[in-house]
Amino acid sequence: MVAPLDRANIDTDAIIPKQFLKSIKRSGFGQNLFDEWRYLDHGEPGMDSSKRTLNPDFILNQLRYQGAQILLARSNFGCGSSREHAPWALQDYGFRVVIAPSFADIFFSNCFKIGLLPIVLGTDSIDRIFSEVDSTEGYALTVNLEDQTVTTPCGEICSFDTDPFRRHCLLNGLDEISLTLQHMDKIIAFEQRRRTEQPWLFK
């Protein structure tokens, strides 16, 4: 199911305000996703979010969008800081996919690292999906990562592109560090050469 957030340039401070970045954990950020838009009171870490007042005007608070796994937004989604807390918060809230016409670079690559899928679709498709979501309660899309397609309820298919390596890692749940360490010999050889050619880079 899809939840629409009709704004461009949604930044990482909006996705997860900085006071929540003080946590030294990876989980639990979902309750503070879009905190300043979502609640009427000011949120601080450690507050019981079930006791806070929700902002009835914020679209994600509407009953019809509860349980959505796909977030639909406008261009340059995730601009701002490099905080991985932003994708963590989206994922922890329950989103598995974010669809937008464009994403900020660091946010985009952070998503793949944690298994949240950012999908770039053309503005025309996005416009259409926005209006269909609005007019259809329970509007759902089918996302197929293997085929790289998004299918609308009436059967229309939009294709998207992902990097083959990232797709492979995501589909197979691979740990990038282990994959990189398979090249350990090459890293050591590169480092040795560097040590001779640019010794000032080493202590």
Binding site: R26, I106, N110, I114, E176, I177, H183, I187
Partner: peptide
């Protein structure tokens, strides 16, 4: 010089490398 997310911080700590696509 560029900013990275926490998973990449861990990746650099562990391997001294990053997987990147040329811009």
């Amino acid at each position: 010089a560029f900013g990275i997310g926490t998973s990449e911080v861990e990746h650099v700590l562990a391997t001294q490398c990053l997987l990147l696509k040329k811009a």
